[in-house]
Structures are given as C-alpha cells and as structure tokens.
Design a protein around this nucleic acid. Sequence first.
DNA 1: TTTTTATGTTATAATTATTGACAAGGATAC
DNA 2: GTATCCTTGTCAATAATTATAACATAAAAA
Lengths: 228, 228
Amino acid sequence: MTMTTEKETNQKKIPSMTVRRLFLYYRALLESKDTSVISSEELAEITGFSAAQIRKDLTYFGQFGTPGRGYNIDQLKQKLIQILGVDREWNVALVGAGNLGRALLTYQGFKQQGFKVSTVFDKDKEKVGKSYHGVLISDFAHAKEIIKSHDIRIAIIAVPAVAAQEVVDQLVEAGVSAILNFVPYRIKVPPHIKLLNIDMAAELGRLSYYLTNDVVLAKMPELKEDTL
Amino acid sequence: MTMTTEKETNQKKIPSMTVRRLFLYYRALLESKDTSVISSEELAEITGFSAAQIRKDLTYFGQFGTPGRGYNIDQLKQKLIQILGVDREWNVALVGAGNLGRALLTYQGFKQQGFKVSTVFDKDKEKVGKSYHGVLISDFAHAKEIIKSHDIRIAIIAVPAVAAQEVVDQLVEAGVSAILNFVPYRIKVPPHIKLLNIDMAAELGRLSYYLTNDVVLAKMPELKEDTL
DNA sequence: TTTTTATGTTATAATTATTGACAAGGATAC
DNA sequence: GTATCCTTGTCAATAATTATAACATAAAAA
C-alpha cells in the first residue's frame, strides 16, 4: 500500500467548491481592467466571496500575490487560465440538435470562455447533412471517427432521455472523457469519465420546494453549492 | 432569544442534498409503474443512491412506508408531489427571448414536470408583440402588471449579463420570489428571494479543470453535489 | 405463532468547508 | 536606510453538513 491506485500522486486534493470559485474569479478578472493590481479584498468585493477564502483557494496552487500589494491582475489571470486549462480552445461535440441542442450550439457564453462547439451530432436523417449556424450536423453513427479525428474530449448531450445512456456509452467508447449532460436522466459512466449534470427541470423542482415550504434563509448564503 | 427571526419555526432543517434527491426519487417513481409497491432497496437500484439514504431522506417528512413491505408507489408519489409543491401547475415567467430563452420556452422537460412558461418578456421592440410557440412576447416594461395579474412567482432569466441585475431587481419588485438564473453573472438578491444559478459555461470550465489536472476519482461519487 | 422482510431511527464517522488570526514579506514614504 | 503600513500565505480551530452503518421495531406472510 505504498503507491499505485487511489489518487494518482500529486494533486493536493482540491475542494470541488474551490474549483468552482476559481472559474468565477477568472471571469471577474476578465472584467476589471482598470487597475493592474487587485487585492483579495477587492476581488472579494466583486465576487461576493470572503477575502480569506479567495486567498486560501489561490494558495492551493501556489503563491501568486505580493504582500503589501496584492495580485497582479494579468499574472493572476494567466495563472488561473493555466490552472483551469482554458489556455487553449477546447473542441466540444454537441449531441442532439433539438431545440435545446441548437440553442446550446449558438450560446455565446461557451465561445467567450474558450469552448467551441465544433461538431454536432444527431440521428435524425432530416437534420443530418444540414448546417446550423455554420456547423454541420453529422450522423451520430459516425461519431467515433469524427470525435477521434477532431480530438474531441468534451461532449455536451441534449438528447431524449431514452437515448442518453446509449449515446454516452458510445461517446465514451469514442474517447470522450468529459460530459456535460443536459438530459434529465442519471447516466452511468465509468469512474474515469468526468460527468456533470445540468438538470434544469430539477432546479425548478427545488425552487418549487423552497417556495412551498417557505424556507427563510438566515442570510444570503455565499454560493455554497450554488446559492440556496 | 426565544423566538422570532432566524428560521421561521417548524421546518426541521432539511439538508439541501435531500431536497435535490427528493425530486429525483419523484421522477424515478413516475417511470416505475410495474408494481404497486417499491422497497427502498429497489428505489436505490433505480436511482443509484443507497437504500439507507433514501429511507433517511424520506423520514425527514414522515413515515410513508410499511415495514416488511415497502412503499406504496402511488402513495409515495403523492407525498413527494406534495412535499415538492408540484401538486399544481406553476406559472413561470421567462425573461429574455434570445436563442437560449427561446429554447427554454420550448423545453419539454419543464412542462412535463408541471412548470408552464406562461409569459415571455423581452426589451427588443422587434420581438415584442410577436408570439413564439404560442406564447406572446411582452415588453419587459410591463412586467410588473403582467406578473401580478398572472400570479407568477417563479422567473427564469436568460438576458445579457449587463441587464441581469436590473431585470432581477424589477422582477423582485414585481413580486417574483424565485429565480432560475442562466446568466453567467452573480446576481444579488434580498435574503427572502430564492435564487438558483445555472452557469453553463462555468460547468464547462470545471470540466476543463478536471480534464487538465487529471483528477482520478476514487469511485464514482453518488451525486454528491452533482457528480464529480 | 413464528419467521421473514423492510422500515424508521439513532448514533457515529467522515468529510468538507469556513473563519479568524497572525507572522512574514514587500512596498512606500520619510 | 529605516520605519511604517499593507496584504499575503498559512496554520489552527471551528462549524456545518452529509453519509454510513447498525439495529430495534413493526407489519406481513407462512
């Protein structure tokens, strides 16, 4: 029980909440271009997190600031980009060209943050072959080749629930290793696949709960999981 | 320091993760119509959570099962519906009729779960007055009257980031008390407003992080916050 | 009446996250 | 060049949350 298995060395066990906040720090820095230096206190002001927390989050990855001064914005931004792995453009595959899928395809927020939906798949022969917003819709039957040739590691899925598991299985087989799932279905994936679920209807369900059982929150929770 | 303030009596402090899972139990029950009774073990099988956890979650709200037998499906479903407050149809307002907004408007997942997007707002004079999928797009300037007359308590927002805060402020003033925010911007709301953020780009950012710093997860985490 | 089965509940363990405090490091001003 | 001020990096303590396991109890079936 010395090495091997479990957690592959390094990686000091970063809290998942830290990872989440990191991206928000990064986005906040994209805005503030007024000054060249920013203190944890100022960044706290902008993002709504505590200064202590920001400093703690950052030091998981190194020492980026200068005492008595703060953080050099450009430098910190660069570091965050590097940490988050957004120092490149990711090619993302979208599976499902329905209403939601097409909206995701044109969603500017992805592009702005360095994610390019470079391929769209669908099974519908009606859609296959056509282009939507400059992106060709390919037959999902050919997903494997295309994914490999485009070096795609991230996929977004927006297909009917019944098709979800099958689609994901094939994506995994094709070499995709991260999936952003919009389908309201709990997909099973092997442990090495990174899966994130966005369950929009379930979120409304939560709101319905909190509205119904009028939960009075003591204070505005500073983005614990996601507010609330 | 006897009563008043803090947490308004009752409400035994339900873990937020429990609320999340509750909705997933509910959705799972919608499917399984084969039998009339289901055990926590069986429900665990379907949903992927542990049987102990399911029982624990449920008993926050009462005793719904019969020992030696399990849970009566119809009865449990009914209870969950009641707890979640989805025993009615919620009228939801959508603000922002852009690409994303329009996709959300037609998203079947909402309707299926009892949420009806009954009103759409936009500021764009081009869009106002037109209908989209049978729903009239109204001028956001008239939001207050319309929201009040339609008894709308939940709003979904999908507007440009710069407009988000202003829009939310007005929604709150109009009487909306729950907001599902798709805008990648940390909106500030008074403590009594329930706000849930869906930050799609940030989710991709997280995936990018996990992909870059290859984090090997010891085991498939059973939907802690949302997988990963 | 006995056996079986699955719930409800309590206690425990573990994890995870937040907060506060402070020493040390630079920068700036004098 | 020295003193003062400011802000970081980090440690330790605390707090909150969540999950797990075990078991007594209660209903059903045999």
